[in-house]
Design a protein around this nucleic acid. Sequence first.
DNA 1: CTTAGTTTGTCTATCCAATAAACTAAGTTT
DNA 2: AAACTTAGTTTATTGGATAGACAAACTAAG
Lengths: 386, 386
Amino acid sequence: MTTPTGDQALIKRINTAIVLEYILRGAPLSRAQISEQSGLNKATVSSLVQDLIDGSLVRETGTGQSSGGRKPVMLEFIATSGYAVGIDLGVNYIRGVLADLRGNIIAERTSSLRHPDPGAAAEQLCECIDSLMAEAPASPYGIVGIGVGVPGLVDDLGSILFAPNLKWRDVPLQQILTERFSLPVTIDNEANMGALGEQKYGAGRSISNLIYVSVGIGIGTGLILHKSLYKGASGFSGEMGHLSVEAHGRSCACGNRGCWELYASEQALLEQSAELGFEDLESLLVAAGEGRQDVLELFSGIGEYLGIGIANIVNVFNPDAVIIGNRMSQARPWLEGVLRQTVTQRALGFHLRKVQLLFAELGERSSMMGAAEMAIAGFFSRVKAT
Amino acid sequence: MTTPTGDQALIKRINTAIVLEYILRGAPLSRAQISEQSGLNKATVSSLVQDLIDGSLVRETGTGQSSGGRKPVMLEFIATSGYAVGIDLGVNYIRGVLADLRGNIIAERTSSLRHPDPGAAAEQLCECIDSLMAEAPASPYGIVGIGVGVPGLVDDLGSILFAPNLKWRDVPLQQILTERFSLPVTIDNEANMGALGEQKYGAGRSISNLIYVSVGIGIGTGLILHKSLYKGASGFSGEMGHLSVEAHGRSCACGNRGCWELYASEQALLEQSAELGFEDLESLLVAAGEGRQDVLELFSGIGEYLGIGIANIVNVFNPDAVIIGNRMSQARPWLEGVLRQTVTQRALGFHLRKVQLLFAELGERSSMMGAAEMAIAGFFSRVKAT
DNA sequence: CTTAGTTTGTCTATCCAATAAACTAAGTTT
DNA sequence: AAACTTAGTTTATTGGATAGACAAACTAAG
């Protein structure tokens, strides 16, 4: 094994990354400002900026305001020098996006999954990707990568080991897509993608430690710790849907008892609402909007159990923020009150001081945008390495 | 704000650290081996090794076996060029150690806490440190630092915000000790220290992701993720003793209900054993050793609840290992069976494949050794920076 | 014992990125 | 217009890493 050693190329990579980071965050700004803010020498900044300009990642946008001397030449990142594809593969839908390198949405596709069989789904997925790629304007780097979020366990090679709601086992999706498109492909769990999406483009912008709770049919979680996705020993963690909140509660298909998602997921809601004659979340939302008391009580129950689990999360991770996403986030108006109250009651005071309780800003787009972000991040780490 | 930028000094730091790491792990070994294994040029290794020799951190130990050419000059780390003090401040005891830079124990002190008052305790603590420091042989670096593990919440400035069992609030322990000894001082939670101790010197040697569960009067946890201690937003995470395992169970002093430590801690055990006439863990261990059925059942109950919580941990973190430490680890013979069975039943199959269930190897020394390791690690990060 | 080949570790010339300082360019203020 | 300011480039220097030459010290084959 060879540890990555330090040499001059490493320094250049590090400093290029710093310069690019400043331009990404603070544009428009001048070379002088970058030098002053980063501590890098003016000459160094000039040279690195020139490399970035040569690499079509940055351009000069003309002169800015003088502050008593020569006018600065302002710089900005060229978001349109490449595009990324982000896909959210759901249990019964495929949602896809074409985004530029800043995450601006260029095109979007939504379709329902015609057939849950892995082969057919992969085919439909490829069609979706093809049609999105066709929308990309000509650009220096073209399509820089494809990211896909899936509702299941994914190993580090991008194979779907197990997706219970799709009834898939061992589908080597990354391999299939890489062969088909000859592009870098990243596959990950839907909750991890959602966490990334919200951290980059949504409610959790630039928060270091956040937990994204994806409340859909089941409950999944994406953990961003120290600014990076935490994945456990085998590459999959965050199965917090199967955190037991009632040690001797109902048996779960996973083998455990009293799992959180038995009490706080969309599935749990629908089971309880069946006897009231509701079959899907949408009709329940409408009924709640009309003020139906029995429906409101259902949501309140879900809110309480969500709070119980989130209090646990807060106690365990002491995160900066917890973000509630996926389908259940639409029920925010009827959940939020009970939820906050429960968390406040149950979480430790010291932890509560800092934690923010948020709802996903990107709504149903969290996971898809996270997938696009994965592809973009992969591109950046590659260009910085050259 | 100035981001740390890359320059040549950074390269040297990185490469020095690499070389030192190889010598620490693989000693005795030669310059040639380091060069080959690390990928660094022979000349580079020679030069960096010379610096380390000049800095009294490495020495030549004579020639080794030839492999068909010139004999190599073997190198080893000089563990005795400095010493660290590690302290475990318990609810009713102070345990301290003087260790060399490899963590070899040079001297050890144990005393019971005379008075729980912060002032008196700090005084006793200083006496203990003084007497340990007096044991250190003369060495180039002398005492390189002091680490202290405490049973409470510690902020990033080393102040004890709250230690329920000591009844302390806002004790600026780091400041007190720094002023008194003029040495680098690190204060952290007892469970974090224990996790570090076991990861470095105990059952979890060089495991990347491990969760240390400290089962004493309460339950604390130390999280090592991606090889480094994870501390949450406010600098304290891992309050997993207050993970709720019975959503509608008994009320806990923390405000939550059904907290894990109400069911699986030493406290929980003692409450149940009171009616059998046992007052402390030690007598229960003796009784269990004699095969008393009612006591065995008590331990079995604790084992089951420990398993319930650990299954949750496994599902959330998917760690490489879970290590059970602190006082309750002495009951291993009567806990382990039920515990493993419960975890196997309740944790997700995919996660179980990799996770190891271990008991602390350092026993009561985990936390103290972790504290010493903190001091040693601090020393290394300082020398590498020069 | 000689000779060829191998391995270890050092030495030297070179490369490359960052930097300080000098410098050019292009403004503003008095 | 002169003096000052700020922006960005050029130039010479510094300090690490490196390849390759080299010396030292060994083994093994004849």
